[in-house]
C-alpha cells in the first residue's frame, strides 16, 4: 500500500540537507530516524529538510520531523523546511506546527536565508 521513501543527504555551507521523496509514514519513518544520528551539525548551522518530493506524510512522518528538530536543537543548530507540499502544510496547520518550523520555497532559499552566527 505504501510507496517507498528515498532519502538523500548532502552538505552545504549552511549545514546538512536531507531530501525526502515518497511516502513518509509509519512504514518508512524509521529510515529517517536511523539516518539522523549520522548527520553532524555544528552549533549555529541549519539542518534543512527538503520535502519537495514528498507524496504523503502522516503523524509518524511529523514525529520524524520533530525528531530531526530535536536533533538540530541538541547540536545548537536550527531547522528549516524547504518546498513543503500543500498537504503537509495543511497537517502542520492542523497540529499547530507552522510556527515551529521555518519554511522556505526551496533549499537554495533556505541556504540563502541562513547567516552564520558567531559565539
Amino acid at each position: 500500500m505504501s510507496r517507498h521513501l528515498t532519502l538523500l543527504t548532502r552538505t552545504t555551507t549552511a549545514g546538512a540537507v536531507i531530501e525526502l521523496a515518497g511516502d513518509l509514514d509509519h512504514h518508512t519513518a524509521p529510515e529517517v530516524r536511523d539516518a539522523l544520528p549520522g548527520i553532524t551539525l555544528a552549533a549555529g548551522q541549519q539542518l534543512t529538510i527538503d520535502l519537495g518530493g514528498l507524496t504523503f506524510c502522516d503523524s509518524s512522518g511529523i514525529t520524524m520531523l520533530i525528531a530531526a528538530r530535536n536533533h538540530a536543537l541538541a547540536a545548537g543548530a536550527t531547522i528549516a523546511l524547504a518546498a513543503v507540499p500543500e498537504r503537509v502544510s495543511r497537517i502542520f496547520r492542523i497540529v499547530g506546527l507552522e510556527q515551529v518550523f521555518p519554511t522556505h520555497p526551496s533549499t537554495q532559499a533556505a541556504e540563502d536565508s541562513w547567516h552564520p552566527t558567531t559565539g
Binding site: 530516524r33 539522523l36 544520528p37 503523524s59 514525529t63 520533530i66 525528531a67 530535536n70 536533533h71 497540529v95
Partner: peptide, 10 residues
C-alpha cells in the same frame, strides 16, 4: 518524552 524518540498526541 523528549529527545530522539519524541512521543506526542493530538
Amino acid at each position: 518524552y523528549n529527545g530522539t524518540d519524541p512521543r506526542f498526541c493530538t
